[in-house]
């Protein structure tokens, strides 16, 4: 009776199916736990959280240098920038836009630096549905390999004020 004190000798090991279930549940928990280190060793999609402290203004400067050196065009007033294959790429999040538009090559691996100039943001790469957090003061580095060509949409998925839903950007893979 869950509303009354149990008898004095209540400390007993479980029996029968209850015992079996506890064993099965524990085994399942261990399987789920081991899947994560396994995927770090043999899987291809991981979040290592690689990041460096950076002043927002300093990061903005780096982005501007990157854009200046690698701009190849313009899309709706936003520079389109093509980093060297396998090189460093920069993406700046701010209220309420993504800057610049990156043009990447399928099959190449890039070190993509993302940070915020103001509030917290979230990068959501669609329709792939890959999501990472973007914080001011943190240069978040994703070592990413686009494997399929196309035009992708980037939306912000961390609330960043009244214009949050308008914070939409592009990413092009050739």
């Amino acid at each position: 009776m869950s509303l009354e004190s149990p008898e004095k000798d209540w400390f007993k090991s479980p029996k029968g199916t209850e015992r079996v279930w506890i064993g099965i549940a524990l085994a399942w928990c261990l399987v789920m736990f081991l899947m994560m280190p396994y995927w770090h060793l043999f899987g291809k999609q991981n979040s290592t959280g690689e990041a460096y402290k950076v002043e927002p203004r300093q990061f903005e400067e780096r982005v501007n240098q990157f854009v200046e050196a690698n701009q190849v065009g313009e899309l709706d007033g936003v520079p389109v920038v093509e980093p060297a294959p396998g090189g460093e790429a920069y993406l700046l999040a701010r209220m309420w836009s993504w800057y610049p538009v990156l043009k990447l090559r399928a099959g190449e691996t890039y070190r993509l630096h993302i940070s915020s100039l103001d509030l917290q943001h979230g990068i959501s790469l669609l329709p792939m549905n890959m999501n990472f957090q973007v914080l001011p003061g943190y240069d978040h580095v994703l070592t990413i390999t686009p494997t399929s060509a196309g035009e992708y949409t980037i939306v912000c998925n961390e609330f960043c004020g009244i214009g949050h839903s308008l914070m939409v950007g592009k990413l092009i893979v050739e």
């Binding site: 899987g43 999609q45 979040s47 959501s124 549905n129 890959m130 999501n131």
Partner: peptide, 12 residues
Amino acid sequence: GTQQINIIAHNT
């Protein structure tokens, strides 16, 4: 809440 699966779930 699985570490890697969160990539396709976070903030959605």
